[in-house]
Design a protein around this nucleic acid. Structure first.
Lengths: 354, 354
DNA sequence: CGCTCCCGTGGATACGTTTTCAAGCATCTC
DNA sequence: GAGATGCTTGAAAACGTATCCACGGGAGCG
């Protein structure tokens, strides 16, 4: 009922001008006694500067945007927690959107953020570079996390080919020579090394027919997988879901049924890993006796599984935190991208080839 | 580089006044030809109304706030997804904060939202009614989800007693007779029925010594538990963690060690359930042979566990969606609270008392 | 002693929108 | 035919803040 005090009220109560109040509160210069009086009055009136006025004046919203495909994916939740932690310590609000891995929804949410004048954005992208061009062109400070937008699909290239060329350009460190999107900083895990380690591990156990089970945005991982297993890549052994749990399950189930000869699976994300466990169980495939499984993302429940899942761990929370740091410190001009290490955590879901 | 077009630009280009443009875009009345011209010009200029200006004018931020203890908790992630889905369909941004179950951080985040003039808030509260009084007094439209804030701790009452009196007041339907916070609508599951069903189920299996493992905000569930097992409640069998995974693990481990005579555990949340599985395994307790476990929240990984977890399912996504609906349709004055049913899903983590 | 320079201060302006208000104009009614 | 009524329209105010600019006074320097 009692409306919030405005800067004018404070100014009047302190007997100074609004400019002085603004300066005191923004850390500008002011005489000690003036500053003290203003501060006292502000505290007594319980004055809180309205972000609305400030934002309008400076033509930008203070907060930062965060776009992830699905919070129910534990890795994305970890990443979000990292972003939130960093943002909180900076006192910045964060606007979250979930895209369901759908470029269209992603574009829509970008539009919404633009409308809100949110000019700093952290994203786990689902769309390709074309989707992201508008946002970047508008001057938004964008930081990609976990993955990079794929090359625009000029015509109909199959994902694998695009993914490989993507890898060529990006080559471990994402700051490739060309490609517009390489100008935007990113925080990603060293997918190439992670996948390579996992594949070598499986090879060491005797596995020959190894499959990759990916979701949207896992092109880099798929490409790294292709590289790690070496040519010729059996294209039937690289399958993709579309982002939903159902689709992941369908992909996993289809893979197991169409290729009973495979003996090991690398899941490109924890939702895919979950689907693989479920599908295998449904088809009476025992893990790891009948099929070995290694899953991207170390999540708390990986350890609870039957058997406990061998995973490629990437520091989700750290990635979010670092991404938030990058996007907040973007005052310091051009930012370097960050590549964090992965770690193969061996539990019980891999065994020797039967 | 090219600054965004403002309403003035559109007005000038269309040869009309800004008021007309505003009306056309807000669905006001205008002559067909004027409307068409304005729309055409706006489209051609790629004009998007700035939320900043609008918000300042109407003295409120369009968006809605969402406060949860921890997105890494799968249930909270589900709830958040529900909120995001509803908000997206309404075109509203949502500002998310995670409180780590800490009332202090919660209060801080409430302050931040206040500063942003976010006047609609959905919260899984951690603090008590005292923490929430300021937000509600300011005129914020608040909807609680999953739980209600506890009664203010006047002096040092132990959580169990407070929880029980809480239950007395709230009695299933949260709109109790007194208590200021009972005026705020909420979306909660029928904890009482859920817990009662679980306890009866365990009783039916022959279990006598059943423990409750809770976290912050689980007072109602603890109270319902006490009611279900009937007096006298063995207070040692009701233990609380503080919200973190570590604390949950410590609580679970401590419980198992101090009371080797217990034969069943009800976990008040999925993080507690996770901790219980881990702690049991560490102490070489077999589930369900040595100890039975039923966990609150049905989460995707409950099925993957060894053994698959018997759970009290509550519709997290729906709860979020309904809460968002409530908070958005709050134009229609006083809203009724919603109580959603729970379902006991029997899997493999409960067995007969050994 | 006088000039300059700098610091502290307050008035005024701009940010982009919605909304009120009055005016203009055409149509309808008596 | 004149007054009333309704619809469309544009000018202007307001929202709360940050910042530009001008002004005043004190101190330092010549």
């Amino acid at each position: 009922m009692d409306k919030r005090a405005t800067i004018k009220d404070v100014a009047a109560a302190a007997g100074v001008g609004v400019a002085t109040v603004s300066r005191v509160l923004s850390g500008g210069s002011a005489s000690p006694q003036t500053r003290e009086r203003v501060l006292a009055v502000a505290a007594q009136l319980d004055y809180r500067p309205s972000a609305l006025g400030r934002n309008l004046r400076q033509r930008r919203t203070g907060g930062i945007g965060l776009l992830v495909p699905d919070l129910t994916d534990t890795f994305h939740a970890q990443l979000a927690e990292g972003v939130l932690a960093c943002a909180r310590s900076a006192g910045e609000p964060v606007v979250v959107g979930s895209t369901a891995g759908d470029p269209e929804q992603e574009a829509e949410l970008i539009g919404m953020l633009l409308e809100q004048s949110v000019d700093r954005l952290i994203a786990v992208p689902s769309g390709d570079q074309e989707t992201w061009a508008p946002a970047i062109r508008t001057g938004m400070t964008v930081v990609f996390a976990d993955r990079l937008p794929a090359l625009p699909s000029t015509g109909d290239v199959d994902p694998a080919a695009a993914a490989i060329s993507d890898l060529m350009v990006l080559d471990g460190v994402p700051s490739g020579p060309q490609g517009r999107s390489s100008e935007v900083p990113s925080v990603v895990a060293d997918d190439r090394a992670g996948i390579r380690t996992a594949v070598r591990y499986l090879r060491g156990l005797g596995h020959k027919r190894i499959a990759f089970l990916g979701g949207p945005g896992h092109d880099r991982r798929a490409a790294a997988f292709g590289e790690a297993v070496g040519a010729p890549v059996d294209e039937e052994l690289v399958v993709f879901g579309t982002g939903s749990r159902d689709s992941a399950y369908a992909a996993a189930s289809g893979l197991f049924q169409s290729r009973p000869d495979l003996s090991a699976v690398v899941a490109g994300g924890n939702m895919l890993g979950e689907a693989a466990v479920l599908a295998a169980r449904e088809l009476d495939l025992r893990v790891p006796r009948d099929v070995s499984l290694v899953m991207y993302d170390d999540v708390p429940w990986a350890e609870l599984c039957a058997p406990p899942l061998t995973v490629i761990a990437q520091p989700g929370r750290d990635m979010g935190y670092r991404a938030a740091e990058l996007v907040l410190r973007s005052g310091g001009r051009r930012q370097r991208s960050v590549v964090l290490p992965t770690e193969l955590i061996i539990r019980g879901s891999c065994g020797p080839r039967r």
